[in-house]
Design a protein around this nucleic acid. Structure first.
Lengths: 253, 253
DNA sequence: CCAGCTTTGTGCACACGTTCACAAAAGCCT
DNA sequence: AGGCTTTTGTGAACGTGTGCACAAAGCTGG
């Protein structure tokens, strides 16, 4: 969505659909597991099951990468691991900086899943001078003042923001100014960035709210009557007067 | 996707598109900020900017909830906060259990964002008896043995899995057996669940890989030549023999 | 009470994503 | 060598999501 290349005819040649890109890591993980078990080849049906998608989708996804795979046999596991890794850019090193060493930043610094697949935690930073200087996961936490220098010297290419929400935009701006063009944001805020910078968001609270929505649906449709009379259309207008009233408690009655 | 109601004509009446549901929490957050600043009304243009979406999309999203909003004026902030909250099911209490108190589970237990909006951490569980019994975030960690009883007694409705990957499916199965139908999974595994159970996945490693993909694109299209000669079609077949070779290092040459 | 301005709600067209279903390719067995 | 089986790769139909553009609705000022 942030990647608005002007001239993209379709997805012929080098254009892989965004939805496909988002699934490649899933396939890669399943393939890695097969590889470790020494499985030499896998069919689209088996791999799809392992990745939790349907097989037609998997085949179409893989077809964007090229015509790997052998009809009547399946896909060579090792070869496909390599092709997907290369496509995702995992054959190179991606130094990552984590900014904001609170509970979450601390956990991420220690998180094993980070280290695998070319992602290397190159630096930990915090704005609090009491935190900077501490050793975490074998690294010394640096102070925010050194951000620009660290990005430059360590060739940091991805910034992970785990600060409190109010600080996130400021940190983001500094990262962008320092040349970072890929940001993973854990702070519950919308970050605004210039064209060409990719931001991905991980938001716990949003995920829970989506779950709650579906959960509510389940319980209201199973037996209990939907807890709202459709509230005559036009109610918004007739009610627009009582601004400032504590509607949340009043309306539902 | 998991919600496969047989008869859903379109989105008239009570059917809100999934994409819209995913954005409602965003709007809600923006609205809450406005509410705290005492702003009484907001236009679709302003709210859209605050939520980082375009205004037509926002209006269409809100129109699924009903015809709140007043032409020529905008939306009443408080009223809309309430309507979205109700639609998402946030007017009720959602007790959450966190299973797996490692780095991440520990961080989540202390995470403030959890507590807001009706989500309440009702229990922390771990399979390790050395962890069970510890006090974290003011709660005593319970042992996995008590899972079923805790779910029942505390009316837990959402399970958060923060165990290592190999343990996740087993925990998931026990949660489902105990009656949980909403799961937030942080373990890097595909969980298989019966129909009717919703699973949402938060996967750090996948997000990083997607960023890496785009980052790679940026650098290869800026100047440097694409680092692969298209590798004659049919190569997969001719190469299918050398299984077991360390292709990853060999192929790129 | 009317004219003009603002802003919502939505019909429509288009883009993107998913799934079906099948021809083409490859291996295998007799 | 030829037919049978398996499985890929993809054309085509369908469904979902996005964005434009505008009519309808409401407010305000004269």
């Amino acid at each position: 969505m942030a990647t608005g290349r002007t001239e993209r005819p379709a997805h012929r040649g080098r254009g892989i659909p965004e939805a496909t890109v988002a699934r490649l890591p899933l396939y890669l993980r399943a393939l890695s597991a097969l590889s470790e078990r020494g499985v030499p080849t896998v069919s689209s049906e088996e791999l799809a099951a392992a990745a939790g998608v349907n097989s037609a989708k998997l085949r179409k996804d893989l077809s964007y990468l090229g015509s790997y795979g052998t009809r009547g046999v399946g896909y060579d596991v090792e070869y496909l691991v390599y092709q997907i890794s290369r496509e995702l850019g995992l054959t190179q090193d991606w130094p990552v900086a984590i900014i904001g060493i609170g509970n979450l930043g601390h956990a991420l610094a220690n998180y094993g899943g980070f280290a695998s697949r070319g992602f290397r935690v190159a630096a930990l930073l915090d704005a609090d001078r009491a935190v900077a200087g501490q050793r975490i996961a074998g690294m010394v936490v640096r102070h925010m003042d050194d951000l620009e220098q660290i990005v430059r010297d360590d060739h940091v290419s991805i910034g992970v923001i785990t600060t409190p929400a109010p600080a996130a935009q400021g940190v983001c701006d500094r990262l962008v100014a320092a040349g970072i063009t890929s940001i993973l944001n854990f702070a519950p805020t919308v970050l605004s960035v210039p064209e060409g910078v990719d931001v991905r968001k991980v938001d716990l609270s949003i995920e829970l709210q989506i779950l709650a929505f579906h959960e509510q649906r389940k319980s209201t449709s199973d037996g209990a009557a939907p807890n709202l009379p459709p509230a005559a259309p036009g109610a918004a207008a007739s009610r627009a007067g009582d601004v400032g009233g504590d509607l949340p408690e009043v309306m539902p009655a």
